[in-house]
């Protein structure tokens, strides 16, 4: 699965304002509402479900990256977005480091395979240090979009 299969281009954010875990989740979910990917009425339910998942164990998987996610019946295909925090946010990550890079995923309850393939793509691309570094250094959402496109086509050349 490629980034372009699930990342909503209009919802990408290069400078999140939030300074807390729930704040960044809410800001990203709102960006999916603004991009028309989730209905405004589902925002609260989705934020709550993502935070409930975080209570089971942080999705801050290390290297300054987190993949907050949930299943939700309101979507019929996997939708996601990418955000960068310039300051870094305490996400109770597994390695204790603040998180700068966020991939938020909302998937239909009956498609666990798609969710796995999105996680596979994200984790495989993030093993590339220069990809991580360039994403965190993005000035505009369009820079992130271009990096994702480059990763989709042939991986980022350092």
């Amino acid at each position: 699965m490629k980034f372009s299969d699930f990342v909503a281009t209009g919802a990408i954010r290069s400078h999140v304002h939030a300074a807390t875990k729930e704040g960044v989740v809410r800001e990203m979910a709102q960006s999916l509402v603004d991009a028309g990917k989730i209905a405004p009425g589902d925002l609260e339910g989705i934020v709550k479900a993502i935070m409930k998942r975080e209570d089971l164990g942080s999705t801050g998987i290390g290297r300054g990256v987190a993949v907050p996610h949930t299943k939700h019946p309101s979507v019929n295909k996997l939708v996601g977005t990418v955000a960068v925090s310039q300051q870094g946010i305490d996400f109770q990550s597994l390695d204790g480091e603040p998180v700068q890079l966020f991939f938020l995923l909302v998937s239909p309850p009956d498609r666990p395979g798609d969710h796995l393939r999105a996680l596979e793509n994200i984790s495989r691309q993030l093993r590339d240090d220069s990809f991580c570094r360039l994403l965190k250094a993005a000035k505009e959402p369009v820079d992130i979009q271009h990096l994702l496109e480059e990763a989709d086509s042939h991986g980022v050349v350092s």
Binding site: G113, R117, L119, E120, I122, R127
Partner: peptide, 12 residues
């Protein structure tokens, strides 16, 4: 490594 384990994309 969680990152590496996730790259296996091992389904049920």
């Amino acid at each position: 490594s969680i990152l590496e384990l996730l790259t296996l994309a091992a389904e049920a």
